[in-house]
Write a protein that binds this DNA or RNA. Structure first.
Length: 224
DNA sequence: TTATAGATTGCCT
DNA sequence: GGCAATCTATAAT
């Protein structure tokens, strides 16, 4: 079913702050199919959002904001539409966008995107040599560019120093999100990935069947 | 093809 | 001091 959401402007429009000033679950749902854009000098990096996770704020044990505001997570408590970037496992950055009004915590984690343009730049940033088949990049190496939160952050050159607190709802920013059509993609809800708490909550939003989804699509059947 | 361990930094207790 | 919203290489099947 194709449907438009009346609070989203279509046809190549920047997502405004009101878009993010909602429950992270609604923002997550509506972010699927939108386009993440990085302006790097004359170059444009663009990729379609195919996988996100909602983090609900102080009531969500798995959220960074669960135990209150700290220096690290302050952006999650700030105004909506700002980039929250954190460093994880000594190796990776992850990109989020803050939701809900100033003073109320909440956010959405970007987990996987599908490259649209700037593919060579993304490959360079990832340190990946794109294999070419019949003149086109090999599907497997293409997929490896952005099929995970750490991967997409690296492909887009996202770091905490550079991007944390950046306004994604401003065209003057070099990092923002656009809607390039009025059709909403098919959406599926699953449990979140890589967390220890609140693992059963269905807060991961994916475009089912998209080849760029992160590798871990199902939580292992481990429990205690 | 799937499972597991190691890397490596900064934030919070 | 412990651990984390991950990725990759390597081992095992």
């Amino acid at each position: 079913m194709k449907k438009t959401h009346d609070n989203v402007s279509c046809a190549g429009k920047l997502l405004r702050r009101t878009f993010y000033n909602r429950d992270p679950r609604e923002v997550s749902r509506d972010l699927l199919g939108k386009v993440l854009v990085r302006r790097a000098g004359r170059r444009i990096l663009a990729a379609r959002i195919v996988e996100v996770e909602a983090y609900l704020g102080t009531d969500d044990p798995a959220a960074h904001s669960a135990s209150g505001r700290t220096l690290r997570n302050a952006v999650l408590f700030g105004p909506p539409g700002l980039a929250y970037v954190y460093f994880i496992y000594g190796n990776h950055y992850c990109l989020n966008v803050s939701c809900l009004p100033d003073g109320v915590a909440g956010g959405v984690l970007f987990r996987a995107v599908e490259p649209i343009s700037g593919i060579q730049s993304m490959a360079r940033a990832r340190g990946i040599n794109l294999k070419v088949r019949n003149g086109n990049p090999d599907q497997k190496s293409l997929r490896n560019l952005t099929s995970g939160p750490g991967k997409l952050a690296q492909a887009f050159g996202v770091t905490r120093e550079r991007d944390n607190g950046k306004d994604l709802a401003s065209l003057t920013s070099d990092l923002f999100i656009m809607a390039d059509d009025c059709e909403s993609p098919e959406i599926q809800l699953t449990s979140r990935i890589g967390i220890r708490k609140a693992v059963d909550l269905p807060l991961r939003y994916i475009v089912p069947g998209n080849p760029f989804l992160s590798v871990a699509t199902v939580r292992p059947a481990k429990f205690q």
